[in-house]
Amino acid sequence: MKIPGAKDSIDEATFEQILEMDDDEDEREFSKSIVYDFFTQAESTFEKMDSNLEKKDLKTLSELGHFLKGSSATLGLSKVKDSCEKIQNYGQKKDEKGEKDITEDEGLKKLETTIKQAKQEFHDVEKVLRKFYNDEQ
């Protein structure tokens, strides 16, 4: 099952195993509801990220990053997942790999760009997935 336009934004194998759980390959009820719920979840998480970025609450940002990382990873949305991991690390005042310490200012700066990037990546993959599910219908 190729997802048109997915390229490297979706990990095929991971997403595939969710598609496999669909009882009906035409309806795709299960995977579709999961994916669409994820859209909602991601949107609200990004909103929270924005407000916490204003508040400069790095710790919460890190937690939000982790949260979104988990679900995006489970769906195989690799790009979003990678960015979320970075958000998680920056929020802990670490570099993107979570190895070296960075200052709070650096963290905030990086968080700002990374969150922007994550949003972009999310919207890209969202488009792809929406198209995929619309096509299926």
Binding site: M21, I34, F38, T74, L75
Partner: peptide
């Protein structure tokens, strides 16, 4: 699991 996505997929599996 607090994350609904993971929880649903996990349950499904």
């Amino acid at each position: 699991e607090d994350d609904p996505t993971c929880r649903r997929i996990g349950s499904k599996f």
